[in-house]
Design a protein around this nucleic acid. Structure first.
Lengths: 224, 224
DNA sequence: ATTTTCAGTGAACGACTGTACACTCAATCT
DNA sequence: AGATTGAGTGTACAGTCGTTCACTGAAAAT
């Protein structure tokens, strides 16, 4: 067995196991293996944390011998960087989606929370990875995520400044508000990840109410 | 060298290094070594996470040979359980302190935030451990902390029910409010841990303002 | 048709892990 | 004074880990 069943990633995911194995070009095969390695790594990192990654297990799960790993990544660290970038891109995509979606502020809170939950559900491993490494990680990975999160919080603060009751707020207060919202939503993400998917509705309802409560206070804030 | 300089835990922490090494009873020595092992483990876990603990490094840092570890703990898992219990006890102590401290609600928010920061600063390693394992941990440790945190949130909800504007709130809404407060304070703890100690004042000021904003919304909440 | 390229292979390395066992020797008990 | 206990020691084992190296063989380039 040198070609068949490779990159099957534990399961019957591969089509055409005996018949013609698809006329793949060499680059296509390489890219496919690279993705298999990344997928395996992301799954493992979302379960046991980045520090608990094992090159050998990643390779095994990708259907490849350990040393083949180095044909795609110079070292484990490079894999880590790629993983962080990929997960952050997913997160940014979601934020952008929530920002541009509704237009009318009729029920912006409900729409945003819904966007959040849908994105978390369709990228669970990415979010597990981000949350895990944000708090549990070591050194560079944690800091990178922290910086990026601060950046996103800053963008949120700018967005908030365009709302009716917030136009007169100082940037410092806007930042505080954005911080509060982000930490509440981060806790919501954690709840979603830990809950069995059935109880999404309650979690989202609670998240909505938290945001509503926060914005109830806004008109009565005496800016410093 | 069989006795001198043991349990010094890297540093000039030991008194009487050459002269009479204190008339310690056997149980006292045992307890001292046990503590040295726990301290070393906590420090390492707060830096590299519980999963990154190394029995050999713990023993080395405690000034003891690796196998001596088993005179104090049956396995690494037992050490982990002890660490969780100890850290949770520290956390509960703080919560209780913040609850009983002020009496007059003159500036309860400021007092509570101050209590929080002081306790975090004097138990940094415990808090690092808790935050790390809450999010980054695996299996039993993470779940234990999660359950305990939910319990503390529930207690906070009960406490909140006794305040003026909150007496008519449903338990569900109180729970939501407590959740929001806890997640905001958890984010504050994280900020404190990551910041260099000089910038505590700003972090605490921001934390205060977040709580004030939340409570500004309370009078206008229409309970569901 | 021949040469070149290179993803994937398999053995081997040195360093690390948790744990088991037989040992020493001073504090404690009888 | 003598026997017992038990914290701490040193060696050893089987298992991980990331990484290196020379290799094979089919696809791509000539």
């Amino acid at each position: 067995m040198t070609r068949a069943d490779v990159n099957g990633v534990t399961g019957p995911a591969d089509v055409c196991s005996t018949a013609m194995t698809a006329p793949e070009t060499r680059n296509e095969r390489k890219e496919r293996t690279r993705r298999a390695l990344l997928d395996a790594a992301l799954r493992q990192a979302s379960e046991r944390g980045f520090a608990g990654l094992s090159l050998r297990e990643i390779a095994k799960q990708a259907g490849v011998v350990p040393t083949a790993f180095y044909r795609h990544f110079e070292s484990m660290d490079e894999l880590g960087v790629t993983l962080v970038e990929e997960s952050m891109r997913a997160l940014r995509t979601m934020i952008r989606g929530a920002r541009n979606a509704p237009g009318g502020s009729a029920d912006l809170i409900r729409a945003s929370v819904r966007t959040l939950s849908e994105h978390v559900r369709s990228h669970e491993e990415h979010y597990w990875f981000l949350v895990r490494e944000r708090y549990g990680g070591t050194g560079a990975v944690r800091q990178t995520i922290g910086v990026e999160l601060k950046l996103l919080t800053g963008e949120l603060a700018v967005d908030l400044a365009r709302f009716d009751g917030l136009r007169t707020w100082s940037t410092e207060d806007l930042r505080m508000l954005a911080d509060l919202i982000v930490s509440a939503m981060l806790a919501t993400v954690m709840e979603l990840l830990e809950a069995r998917p059935g109880s999404d509705a309650e979690i989202l309802a609670a998240a909505e109410r938290k945001l509503r409560l926060i914005f109830l206070g806004v008109p009565h804030w005496r800016s410093t």
